[in-house]
Design a protein around this nucleic acid. Structure first.
Lengths: 195, 195
DNA sequence: GTCTATAAGCCGATAGAC
DNA sequence: GTCTATCGGCTTATAGAC
């Protein structure tokens, strides 16, 4: 088993990742995570102080993975920024069309913890979303768009809306039309001199 | 008490509405709802078959309320469609800036029930969101926009994204810039002959 | 239609042995 | 660092009296 090469902590986070994402935070018990990781609950509490800490680490483990997927889709496409953006939305379209897709893990976790302002997992989610938006702004800037920050925020809002709408309707047309709106807004931002 | 004039069922839904929205679905027990409604749990189960049914009725009770608020903000503003749209986003800005705001109840409920496809509450949420989008399309059509359906979908996606982003960042700038993006997209849809 | 009482099990977290 | 055992409380839902 490849799991043998992982530390206990890594196996716990892997189990938490799978269960928290598929079933939700409150629907997943610490017992279930420990069982999936192949340890007892007492051992889990040796590695993590509380369930809340584990929730934050679960989201933290998805931060780079998510961002790297976006970067990969964007960079792999040749052409101008609008072609790359179309490729980004295509990647999201494929991901969200998978039957095991359960929405954006960050959005869903923040939604479940909405009654706990200041929860560490909310901070992790906020930072992740800021990273995505800032990455978009940098790419737009390097591709010579005016007001790259503003356009990045508009596209980010469409990304968030696309995932929320896809979760409730389960209709890929929402992703495609979010991409269409993003393309309109990007084409509206003409070429400029520098960043 | 005004509650005396309400039926038991209405009081249960009122209690469920408050608790489900403020704390979340799974974080709210049937015990707590019954206590808040001033009845016993057994009486609650006389009026509702299960917690799942109560969740669906909770969302159903917010359907018209939400839609009417949007319609009110839009209609109260004099001027062209872009002015009315600005007023709509202003209403959302005020609502979401309130410290007791806990995100879109429909989005959060769908997020919590993502592991239960076909749950009755998900259907209610999907229908509600469709109503909002279709209302936007009708307003855009009556105001002479071309491709009213497409523009309505774009604006709807921005609305969803604005609420999701506001919940994670708690920064009203996201609402304002969603309104800005919506204005750009609406101005892009010029006048046409009829619906 | 509302009540008391309870089923049968799961929850997060901990004690103490090894 | 991992184990067995358990605490005290909460979970949805139901039985049966009135």
């Amino acid at each position: 088993m490849a799991d043998k090469n992982k530390s206990t902590k890594e196996r716990i986070i892997g189990a938490a990742n799978s269960l928290f994402y598929m079933a939700g935070i409150r629907a997943t018990s610490v017992d279930a995570i420990a069982a999936k990781a192949g340890i007892t609950k007492r051992s889990l509490y040796y590695h993590f102080q509380s369930k809340d800490e584990l929730i934050a680490e679960y989201l933290g483990s998805r931060d780079q993975l998510n961002l790297n997927a976006y970067k990969k889709w964007f960079a792999a496409q040749e052409g101008d920024v609008s072609a790359k953006l179309r490729a980004l939305f295509n990647g999201i379209l494929e991901t969200t069309s998978h039957p095991k897709w359960r929405g954006c893990g960050f959005q869903r976790t923040v939604g479940e913890l909405a009654n706990k302002p200041g929860h560490p997992a909310i901070r992790v989610a906020s930072l992740h979303k800021k990273k995505v938006e800032q990455w978009l702004a940098e790419e737009f800037c390097h591709n010579g768009l005016v007001n790259a920050d503003v356009t990045a925020r508009h596209v980010f809002l469409l990304l968030e809306g696309a995932m929320a709408a896809m979760l409730v309707h389960r209709d890929p047309a929402y992703i495609r039309q979010a991409a269409e709106a993003a393309a309109l807004l990007v084409s509206h931002a003409a070429q400029s001199e520098d960043c």
